[in-house]
Design a protein around this nucleic acid. Structure first.
Length: 457
RNA sequence: GGCGACAUGGCCAAGUGGUAAGGCAGGAGCCUGCAAAGCUCUUAUCCCCCAGUUCGAAUCUGGGUGUCGCCUCCA
């Protein structure tokens, strides 16, 4: 299996440190607001990596942190008159709901920054003891110049970074490039050897990664906007504190754009996952994301989502057959193509093409095709479960139909039986009126050889 | 300014030296009472432009043009 490593900027063979065990860390959300389509892309991408690694037989430990101590959370807490805990707890729940709605698997470990403070403080102490960090007036900073590899991940020459570095007012740094490991904060802070304060964002990930996965891990992933400074700083801190390599494979996903511009909180041009789910289902959003390679930008538009909806419908509408658990799916050419594609740095668009081949074969009743399709589609996180109507929704559909047609049906079976009778009597007016009436309620009737079935549009 | 990525049919998108996957949309046919779904066929002499390397390039090299991203919080 090959993966693109941002550190070397090359596609490399993936080899875990320890046999088939894979330690994988993904930078999780800062929980202060709604997640948007950009977050959806990131977490769907790494969900697919997680699923695929497991499918390949790796023993994966997937850790995705929750940043629950941060300026933005504090600001929100102050403006809303709440405690930071209330804000982060609320938005963490929202985030979890969004992830579930998108059918993302839960990471094996979801550590909270506020629960890993001891590890962070220990790491900062180490860095000071080793001369990589210094305390000034309650703040602690990392000496960037002490780490010779600084800038390697982001491919930034250090002098270029230096000339662009901002000098904050009222901060006593030795060098403008130095970044905060610990910030004095007497209002919301925690006790530390340097007074009351809170951790810098970067040290959080370094500490959580070390605590839950170890000093050197296989994969560290996140959005490409985290390369600088976040991941660059993580490398500096971790490698100086631990005295060994931090991460073997750095993986980064591209952005979702809208009107050719990066979708982001600060630009305000974002669509929340909740809002999207009102118009499109999880399979559609996933398909939309996976039609593009994960490192390429993806341009959002309603047209693109509608196209994705039509595409995923074809896939999931494949003619069902009994799932054959004993089937050797590896003998199928499409299986091989799927694995080849995914092994090639997660080429999901090629993998999807293999799924479409299987769909075509399943529709032609070719033995086993549906089983292979079902299994491989699950690796990409698609779910074949049809959306169902609740009793109440079904009742309101029937009621609407009755009031349209002046009838008295009590259930869908009765409606279908009535239509069957009308068709047998060649009473096309009634038969078509029922179909049109249901269509208005978002229900499609399909007349097949084995009778008529209904489903949601 | 520094660093990086991308440019393939109406739209999206694979393809990194041997002659253009796949999806959406469109067209024709089959099936159907008519539909829907499905099935079959069909839609790029050509891959931003120019030059070069090669028997052969969308794919390699050089030079343009255009778009985007990072360099500040950001998935």
């Amino acid at each position: 299996m090959k993966l693109h490593n941002s550190y070397t900027n090359k596609v490399e063979d993936f080899k875990p440190i320890d046999g088939n065990k894979v330690k994988m860390y993904v930078c999780g959300p800062t929980v202060y607001d709604n997640a948007h389509l950009g977050h959806a892309r990131c977490y769907i991408t790494w969900d697919v990596l997680y699923r695929y690694l497991k499918f390949k037989g790796f023993d994966v430990t997937y850790c995705r942190n929750v940043t629950d101590v941060d300026d933005k959370i504090l600001k929100k807490a102050e403006s809303e008159g709440k405690t930071p805990e209330e804000v982060s707890t609320y938005w963490y729940q929202r985030f979890t709901e969004s992830m579930n709605a998108l059918n993302n698997l839960r990471p094996d470990i979801e550590p909270f920054a506020t629960k890993t403070l001891g590890e962070m403080i220990g790491m900062v102490k180490d860095l000071i003891a080793k001369g990589y960090a210094y305390e000034t007036n309650g703040d602690v900073y990392f000496r960037v110049k002490k780490f010779p590899h600084y800038g390697y991940l982001s491919k930034q020459p250090i002098d270029a970074l230096e000339s662009g570095a901002r000098v904050e007012v009222g901060v006593q740094k030795e060098d403008p490039l130095d970044f905060a490991l610990w910030k004095k904060d007497e209002k919301f802070g925690y006790k530390s050897p340097w007074g009351v304060g809170r951790p810098g964002w970067h040290i959080e990930c370094s500490a959580m990664s070390r605590k839950y996965l170890g000093k050197t891990i296989d994969i560290h992933a996140g959005g490409a906007d985290l390369i600088f400074p976040h991941h660059e700083n993580e490398i500096a801190q971790s490698e100086c504190a631990n005295g060994c390599k931090f991460v073997n494979y750095w993986l980064h996903n591209g952005f979702v754009t809208i009107n050719k511009e990066k979708m982001s909180k600060s630009l305000g041009n974002f669509l929340t996952i909740d809002d999207l789910l009102k118009n499109y289902d999880a399979n559609t959003i996933r398909f939309f994301i996976l039609t593009n390679h994960y490192r390429m930008p993806v341009e959002f538009s309603d047209e693109a989502l509608q196209s994705a909806a039509a595409g995923v419908k074809r896939l999931l509408n494949a003619k069902p057959a009994k799932i054959d658990e004993g089937l050797n799916i590896e003998q199928f050419a499409e299986y091989k193509e799927f694995v080849d594609a995914m092994d090639d740095d997660l080429n999901t668009s090629r993998a999807l093409a293999a799924l479409f081949e299987l769909t075509n074969k399943a529709n032609k009743d070719i033995q086993g095709a549906y089983t292979v399709l079902f299994k491989l589609a699950s690796v990409l996180g698609f779910t074949f479960e049809k959306q169902k109507l609740s009793e109440e929704e079904l009742k309101s559909v029937i009621n609407a139909l009755n009031s349209d047609m002046g009838t008295n049906y009590t259930g869908m079976d009765e409606v279908i039986a009535a239509r069957k009778k009308a068709r047998e009597e060649k009473n096309w007016a009634v038969a078509d009126a029922i179909r049109v009436g249901l269509d208005k309620q978002g229900i499609v009737l399909k007349d097949g050889k084995e009778g008529t079935v209904w489903e949601l549009k």
